[in-house]
């Protein structure tokens, strides 16, 4: 049995929104993430796909404890990380880093590149001398393809792609076991996107880091992931191997997502018949009853509005939450 790096069990995150009038504050709770379970093994890439507002970022932030979770359990490196006290959090985080979506906003504009990249060292490797830290920073910069002559510059002097490299350099300097990438390429230009994806793939191979790769772009996720998890309104719709999901998507939502992605090939793109979803995703504050996807689903029947589907195992490691998928185990 292989030891998982990260085990997430029945994770639920609730947010409160103000819902009252001038004189009375009423709050309405809604679940940004509802009963989500998954795991990540060593040096594996788990892709997380979903539309905006589906709770992708909340999930990432809950794993690194930037937002609190309301129920469920996160086990990190075999230890329970949910109940650990704030004072021990720092120790946990050493092996867990985050790369953010907006490359420039995630760098402190008043710090030089060397200060930014060495920040984790300042916190975790206080035994190192200034010289040793600088050497590590330079090594890290070279690894991500930044010229070390830029070490004393400020973030605003860099382009978006370079800023993202700085963010990645900071994330890898402690040699973490897992990096969570929250839409790392969606703010970048196409040609830069490819560079950063290549870089992430390369780093993962070289340092055998596990990645949780969050994106709204299925084609990016397909390129980089080993397994893919599809999220809709805070619920897992489908989780499967990358090949299973893309060649044989079982959930109607995954199928719709796949068909919505344009192909950069005019003949194929103009010939194929798209199977578009109707409407927008409902607000997570007022989710539909039963299966959350039923309002846009073509297969929707009575049961969908009554009962929330439980996850069914279609195949080993392929779970689908849909009433219309037959359970492999029950057969």
């Amino acid at each position: 049995m292989r030891e998982n790096l990260l085990d997430v069990e029945n994770l639920t995150i609730k947010y409160k929104v103000k819902n009252g009038n001038l004189f009375f504050n009423r709050y309405r709770e809604f679940k940004a993430i509802d009963q989500v379970s998954f795991n990540i093994g060593p040096s594996e890439t788990l892709g997380l796909v979903g539309e905006s507002g589906c709770g992708k970022s909340s999930l990432a932030r809950a794993i690194v404890k930037l937002v609190g979770l309301d129920s469920g359990k996160v086990t990190w490196l075999g230890k329970d990380w949910t109940s650990s006290h704030a004072s021990t959090d720092r120790k946990f985080r050493e092996n867990l880093q985050l790369v953010f979506q907006d490359p420039l906003a995630s760098l402190n504009p008043r710090m030089t590149v060397s200060e930014i990249i060495s920040e984790p060292l300042e916190n975790y490797r206080k035994d190192l001398s200034v010289l040793e830290k600088i050497e590590l920073v330079k090594k890290s910069m070279e690894t991500v393809g930044l010229s070390t002559s830029m070490i004393n510059r400020y973030p605003h002097e860099f382009s978006g792609g370079q800023c993202q490299r700085i963010g990645i350099a900071r994330a890898i300097i402690l040699k973490p076991k897992l990096i969570i990438c929250d839409e790392p390429v969606s703010a970048l230009d196409v040609s830069i996107q490819a560079q950063v994806i290549n870089l992430l793939k390369d780093l993962q191979k070289r340092f055998s880091i596990a990645l949780l790769f969050i994106s709204h772009d299925l084609s990016v996720v397909k390129h980089i992931s080993d397994r893919v998890m599809v999220l809709y309104l805070g619920r897992i719709m489908e989780i499967a191997n990358v090949n299973d999901l893309f060649s044989n998507p079982s959930h109607p939502y995954s199928q719709a997502l796949l068909s919505a992605i344009p192909i950069p090939d005019p003949i194929r793109e103009k010939e194929r018949k798209r199977d578009n979803l109707v409407g927008d995703a409902p607000s997570p504050i007022f989710p539909p009853s039963g299966c959350v996807f039923r309002t846009r689903c073509k297969k929707s029947t009575n049961i969908c509005s009554i009962k929330e589907p439980r996850e069914k195992i279609v195949k080993l490691g392929h779970r689908v939450a849909c009433h219309h998928v037959s359970d492999e185990e029950s057969k």
Partner: peptide
């Protein structure tokens, strides 16, 4: 975001 990233950096 850079405050979040600082926190993640420990």
């Amino acid at each position: 975001e850079f405050i979040d990233s600082a926190r993640v950096s420990g």
